[in-house]
Simulated assay, not measured.
Amino acid sequence: MDRSIGKWWDRLQFTLLFLSLTVASHYAYGWLQTALSPLDPYRVPEGRAEKVFGADGSDSGPSSQADRLRLFYWLGE
């Protein structure tokens, strides 16, 4: 009888530890996702800043291939 209670107690401890580590990893991945996500380019500027862009298409973004590749991996576009 005592042996079966010990077995169930061990299983309960394992289950609680597994669930708590699962929840902790879920929140850690969520925090990591928000920390690594790019800034919102469409947000309203703060302070005295003005939002400007090249309307004539002359400024097409990064010029070197390495910068373009970095931007591709960062934004996924």
Rank of each mutant, 00 (worst) to 15 (best):
R3D: 12
R3T: 12
S4P: 00
I5K: 11
K7G: 01
K7N: 07
D10F: 03
R11N: 12
F14K: 15
T15C: 04
T15S: 10
T15P: 00
L16V: 12
F18G: 00
F18Y: 11
L19D: 04
L19I: 13
S20C: 11
S20D: 08
T22H: 04
T22E: 07
T22C: 09
A24V: 12
H26T: 14
Y27E: 11
G30V: 03
W31M: 11
W31R: 11
W31I: 11
L32T: 05
Q33C: 09
T34E: 14
L36F: 08
P38F: 02
P38D: 01
L39D: 09
L39R: 09
L39H: 05
D40V: 02
P41I: 05
P41K: 05
P41V: 05
V44Q: 14
P45R: 02
E46I: 08
G47F: 01
R48E: 15
A49Y: 07
E50K: 10
K51M: 03
K51P: 00
K51H: 07
K51Y: 04
V52Y: 10
F53Q: 13
A55M: 03
G57W: 00
S58L: 07
S60V: 03
G61I: 01
P62Y: 13
S63A: 12
S63R: 14
S63F: 06
S64A: 06
A66C: 06
R68L: 08
L69C: 03
L71K: 12
F72N: 05
Y73W: 15
W74F: 13
W74E: 06
W74C: 01
L75A: 08
G76S: 06
G76I: 04
